[in-house]
């Protein structure tokens, strides 16, 4: 029994290390992505440096954080920024459910492990056929979290040294970034329809509603997913 448990601990440790090592090249990209969040969140006048770092530590989800910073930067209400960011993070509900069976420990341990689930750590932990390595997910998640928070910190500190955001073209950075996040999502016809619908709804509402509201309303385009 105890030998059996020792073997499991040993293999868990090996998987943890493997997850961390696999995540290292991604951590470089995630770290640089964090730098750009730090720069944009503090430079666009939308959020401020310390809240940006706190958000990276707690929310740990790139697209939602950029969405919140972008809506606040455009003068949107906090409620609009909150709704937009949480709708983007709704995907972590099914993602969390998919890995639930493969996490170990009591409720508190599972709660903590759930926080380390991001798109990249989830992909690294996938071992095919809907199965996941719990320990590999944790190793990868820890490395990616450190890179994301560290990168944000660097961006916040370095961003203060930059000049006028518009002259630097930083206002073009947000749409470019969202396009880069959108592109890999457009694999199915349904997601293309949802994207076109979302953009159309948002543009139609810009002249009529306060900033941020067009983004939330665009979520209605996802109802297309009810169709079989």
């Amino acid at each position: 029994m105890s030998a059996d448990r020792e073997m499991r601990t040993e293999s868990d440790r090996r998987e943890l290390r493997r997850g961390a090592v696999t995540a290292l090249p991604l951590a470089v990209a995630v770290g640089l992505f964090g730098v750009s969040f730090g720069v944009l969140a503090s430079a666009s006048g939308g959020m401020g440096g310390i809240p940006a770092v706190a958000m990276s530590m707690t929310t740990f989800a790139g697209s939602a954080q950029f969405a919140a910073a972008s809506i606040l930067g455009a003068g949107g209400q906090p409620a609009a920024a909150i709704a937009g960011a949480l709708l983007l993070n709704a995907r972590y509900l099914p993602i969390g459910i998919s890995v639930a069976r493969f996490l170990h420990g009591g409720p508190l341990a599972r709660f903590a492990q759930g926080q380390l689930v991001v798109d990249e750590s989830w992909a690294i932990a996938a071992s095919g056929g809907g199965r996941f390595h719990g320990s590999r997910l944790i190793g990868a998640g820890l490395v990616l979290w450190l890179a994301w928070v560290g990168g944000t910190l660097v961006g916040v500190v370095g961003g203060d040294a930059l000049g006028d955001p518009a002259a630097l073209g930083l206002d073009a950075a947000f749409p470019a970034l969202f396009l880069a996040l959108l592109a890999p999502q457009l694999r199915s016809r349904k997601s293309v329809v949802a994207a076109i619908g979302g953009a159309a709804i948002a543009l139609a509402l810009v002249p009529a509603t306060p900033a941020g509201v067009p983004i939330i309303a665009a979520a209605a385009a996802a109802l297309f997913g009810l169709r079989r």
């Binding site: 697209s63 950029f66 969405a67 972008s70 937009g84 709708l87 983007l88 709704a90 995907r91 509900l93 099914p94 947000f174 749409p175 969202f178 996040l181 959108l182 999502q185 457009l186 349904k190 997601s191 293309v192 949802a194 994207a195 076109i196 619908g197 979302g198 953009a199 709804i201 948002a202 067009p214 983004i215 665009a218 979520a219 209605a220 385009a221 996802a222 297309f224 997913g225």
Partner: peptide
């Protein structure tokens, strides 16, 4: 839920 990300990101 799967279509929320493309819809919102395109709106952004």
């Amino acid at each position: 839920v799967a279509l929320l990300a493309p819809a919102l990101l395109a709106a952004l």
